[in-house]
Design a protein around this nucleic acid. Structure first.
Length: 591
RNA sequence: AGCCCCGUAGUUCAACGGAUAGAAUAGAAGUUUCCUAAACUUUAGAUCCAGGUUCGAUUCCUGGCGGGGCUACCA
């Protein structure tokens, strides 16, 4: 049983035996470092149930705990805060009791575990991935790791936006300007290659628009007559009627993009279990709308368009089917959700990793699904995250103000390489190994930088100030891990027995207290879908360990103490590795 | 105009309604005969404003001010 649970139980027993009241919750927190003690009980909330003065009650409770709980060796009371000092032996036996160091804190997953489907990434197939996608992907991938650490079965998927006018734009531009060029001929990544034509379209569009306006048209009139725009619209119609030539071109260009994406995903270290394509799903949902209409969930207007009235829920009316009977975004999202539940009948929930600009959309989507009577609608979650902003505003691909994902990763690798060689690390390694290590460290810096921030908050990214490698960063944590591994190299057996009455150094105790919180922290972070909580936990662990390491010699003379410290260092290493794994960051043994 | 989110050291981030608001960077000062100095130690520096709720408010409520987003028969 966890220490905090034992203490909570004891407080409840105290309340019941001495005062005849039932306590639902007890406020327990780590003792602030300026006070003596390890855990603190806040007694103010108890005063609502037990009539007394704060200091008096704390004193009573403290003396009860000291006599009834063997782990409590002393206590002190300051202004209604009861500080308990916990026996060293508790922490020693806690460390001793960890049966499987590398899976400490992880909840086992079995076929009976809850299954969650997580959608993330979900790009358009007309341009390369940028920093905004990177946040989405890292967040989604990390939440997958987090949920599986917390004992869920996880299925990773995405919905690929592979059709629509924006896709036709790059197709038209390639047809007009490409001269049959391929990514191979241009020596470019497929996604960058297609993106180039998307930009070319916009350029030509602006030029033609300017020409029309110069010939005396007003802007609104001109916009409807830009030749290349008309071509793109025609192409979309041809696509929808499955014109073979257009479909072939579309398939070819998307294939180029997917090849490019695959490289980026690989470099980012993420993968997926399934893919949904909008070209398959964009007509889905219509039947459901028709059924919903009969059931009275929706209403039809004179022009034939179908709406969902959400005014009783404090929202507006929402269109779910156009007057011409075609789908809108909402229609296909309804259809896709239902399809996924058909594909995965054992699913217990679904998470959508999508930016917070779509908060309203998902609020409406979930509400409509609930109105349609799907019992699983209450188990859908929009993992909403803040935008990545640049110092000069939002990223806009058409305006060229984007931070390209591949370019950014390359920069991170280069910075890691420059830093490592200037510090004289890794001398004597072969080039391939070095390259791999630079990538691990570069990605460590990038991933940690993005994931340590609360998902809901927006991130300000300044491209001119490179991502840090010192302080509260990924490489700092990786470095600590590497140092631990370097110590452990000198040790043959990691789990030799140690004496239960070793007196603990204060810094040792600080590390152990923090280690003990790991399993609970994982559950908490998973409930909140927040890798940031994991990042901050690991950082605090590493800080405590470094401070300890600085002051104490791990490989000391006394055999029992040495065994204990080796075990402690090794366990800290395991938790660093497992926490960083949740963030998608690998920890090299040397750096 | 309506609705939603956000305002914490110069900067980037923390803080279930709990003690004197924590870190990191940038600034100042130190630490390497000892397991990796990408480290450690010391120091200075912040809750947008005004009310309210209470033993206690960065956190909850109201009203301002400032920033972002959403209010498409686009996705």
């Amino acid at each position: 049983m966890l220490l905090v649970d034992r203490i909570r139980e004891s407080v409840q027993k105290f309340a019941e035996n001495q005062h005849g009241v039932q306590l639902k919750s007890v406020e327990i927190q780590p003792t602030k470092k300026e006070f003596e003690g390890d855990l603190t009980i806040v007694v103010f909330p108890l005063l609502r149930h037990i009539k007394s003065k704060p200091a008096e009650l704390a004193e009573q409770l403290g003396s009860f705990m000291a006599t009834h709980l063997d782990v409590v060796i002393s206590y002190n009371v300051i202004q209604g805060f009861l500080n308990l000092t916990i026996a060293d032996s508790h922490y020693l036996s806690f460390l001793q009791s960890i049966a499987s160091p590398s899976s400490f804190g992880m909840k086992a997953v079995s076929d009976e575990s809850q299954k969650i489907l997580i959608e993330f990434s979900s790009p358009n197939t007309n341009k390369p991935l940028h920093l905004g996608h990177v946040r989405n992907i890292l967040l989604g991938a990390s939440v997958c790791q987090l949920l599986s650490a917390a004992g869920y079965r996880v299925h990773k998927t995405q919905i690929i936006n592979d059709r629509g006018i924006h896709i036709c734009k790059s197709m038209v531009a390639w047809q007009k300007l490409g001269n049959g060029e391929t990514p191979h001929m241009a020596a470019e990544k497929g996604d960058a290659f297609v993106g180039k034509y998307y930009v070319a379209f916009d350029k030509l569009y602006k030029k033609q628009l300017a020409e029309l306006m110069a010939s005396g048209m007003d802007e609104d009139q001109a916009k409807n007559q830009v030749p290349i725009q008309i071509e793109a619209q025609e192409m979309l119609r041809d696509w929808e009627t499955e014109n073979p030539k257009v479909r072939d071109l579309w398939a070819q260009m998307n294939a180029w993009v997917y090849e490019g994406f695959a490289q980026t995903y690989k470099r980012l270290g993420v993968s997926f279990d399934s893919y949904y394509y909008e070209s398959d799903t964009y007509v889905l949902g219509k039947d459901i709308i028709v059924n919903g209409l009969q059931a009275g969930v929706f209403t039809k207007k004179e022009d034939g368009s179908v709406w969902c009235d959400l005014s009783t829920d404090g929202l507006d009316e929402k269109l779910v089917l156009r007057a011409d009977g075609t789908s809108v975004y909402m229609t296909q999202d309804i259809g896709t959700a239902v399809l996924r539940y058909k594909d995965h009948p054992d699913m217990n929930g679904m998470v959508y990793t999508v930016g917070n600009e779509q908060d309203y959309h998902f609020k409406v989507l979930f509400l409509i699904l609930k109105k349609l009577g799907y019992s699983w609608a209450s188990r859908l979650h929009h993992l909403s995250y803040g935008m990545v902003d640049l110092p000069f505003g939002k990223m806009k691909s058409r305006e060229g103000t984007v931070v390209d994902a591949d370019g950014l990763m390359q920069e991170m690798d280069d910075t890691a390489a420059a830093l490592a060689s200037s510090l004289g690390k890794l001398d004597g390694f072969d080039e391939d190994t070095k390259k791999e290590l630079y990538h691990q460290v570069g990605m460590g810096a990038l991933k940690y930088y993005i994931l340590k921030v609360d998902p809901g908050k927006r991130i300000l990214f300044n491209p001119s100030e490179s991502v840090d490698f010192n302080g509260n960063t990924g490489p700092f944590i990786q470095y600590t891990y590497a140092r631990i591994q370097s110590i452990l190299k000198n040790v043959d057996v990691l789990d030799l027995p140690f004496n239960m009455n070793i007196p603990l150094e204060p810094k040792e105790k600080e590390v152990l207290k923090w280690l003990e919180l790991y399993p609970q922290m994982i559950q908490n972070a998973a409930e909140q879908y927040s890798p940031a909580i994991v990042a901050n936990y690991v950082y605090e662990l590493v800080k405590r360990f470094n401070s300890y390491y600085q002051q104490v010699v791990i490989l000391c003379e006394d055999q029992s103490t040495r065994n204990f410290r080796v075990r402690l260092a090794s366990q800290v290493g395991c938790v660093i590795q497992s926490g960083m794994h949740i963030l998608g960051i690998s920890c090299p043994k040397q750096m």
